[in-house]
């Protein structure tokens, strides 16, 4: 990682310092304010609630055609909420100046920020898992006549994979938070980028389609969606929408997350707090 030069002391001290300490610190920080709780509840409820709406009002013809994919419509919004939470975990520290207290307590900045990333990322993953399977379960209740059994690799990927995508999205959000250091700016980027910017690429002639296919969140979605059945909502997308296979797409998305995090850690270690 390019941050290695800046974090050389961290590596030297890590044995006495311990990675668990920074994780414990970030756990305390996150759960001693209320907004993360709200974000997590809202994120889980969004996906599950939208699944209830999507499957609860179907006529019998549509109900038979309902698929697992149909139950997952709210997940993207949940992902946004978790990304906002992840970014806020960093930017509020800058806003209230506690980042300086944090760096004072743990001068090995990259270590401290990685601890935060792990805590926030794992929470996002947990919420993603609860949201995905919760929404699927609600679907099985409301659309009883549909075949919602999880029996293909693609369906498992769609549900369980949500945890991985939430984790990586949270990593990207923390990285953007570290780089921007300001709540409004970071949130604006994190919401506009996947929702708007990546979709607007298609409007650019010639190169636009390729840019869209190779943009990070598109590949995160491609990992989840490829091979899934859209049911009455129509096809989930054909091969021309995807730049690569699902697992390569995941790797590509992960590379973006790792790259951004490396830049963020390097920058945070170098600049004045």
């Amino acid at each position: 990682m390019s941050a290695s030069t800046a974090t050389a002391p961290a590596a030297r001290n890590s044995s006495s310092y311990g990675g668990l300490a920074v994780i414990n610190v970030e756990r305390i920080k996150l759960f001693t304010t209320r907004s993360p709780w709200w974000c997590m509840v809202v994120a889980a409820v969004l996906t599950i609630g939208l699944s209830a709406l999507a499957t609860g009002f179907l006529n019998s013809e549509e109900e038979k055609q309902a698929t697992i994919f149909i139950t997952q419509g709210g997940a993207q919004f949940s992902q946004m909420v978790m990304m906002v939470m992840a970014a806020l975990a960093v930017t509020t520290e800058y806003r209230f100046g506690t980042i300086r207290t944090s760096f004072q307590a743990v001068p090995q900045r990259a270590q401290m920020l990685l601890g935060k990333t792990v805590v926030v990322g794992l929470l996002a993953a947990l919420v993603g898992l609860i949201a995905a399977f919760g929404a699927w379960f609600i679907g099985t209740l409301f659309a009883g006549s549909a075949d919602l059994a999880i029996d293909t690799e693609a369906e498992w990927r769609l549900l369980a994979g949500r945890a991985i995508i939430f984790f990586l999205s949270a990593v990207i959000a923390v990285a953007v938070g570290i780089l921007i250091r300001q709540s409004a700016g970071a949130i604006a980027i994190l919401i506009l980028w996947p929702l708007l910017v990546e979709n607007l690429f298609n409007l650019i002639p010639k190169v636009g389609d390729d840019m869209a296919r190779w943009s990070p969140f598109q590949n995160g979605g491609s990992f989840l969606n490829q091979g899934n059945d859209g049911g009455f909502a129509g096809p989930v997308g054909d091969a021309s929408n995807y730049a690569m296979g699902p697992w390569w797409a995941l790797l590509y998305f992960a590379a973006w997350a790792a790259g951004l995090m490396a830049i963020a850690l390097f920058s945070a270690s170098k600049r004045d707090a």
Partner: peptide
């Protein structure tokens, strides 16, 4: 350095 460097919603 600065007494205000605390999160206002944290005890």
């Amino acid at each position: 350095l600065d007494a205000k460097w605390v999160h206002p919603n944290r005890s």
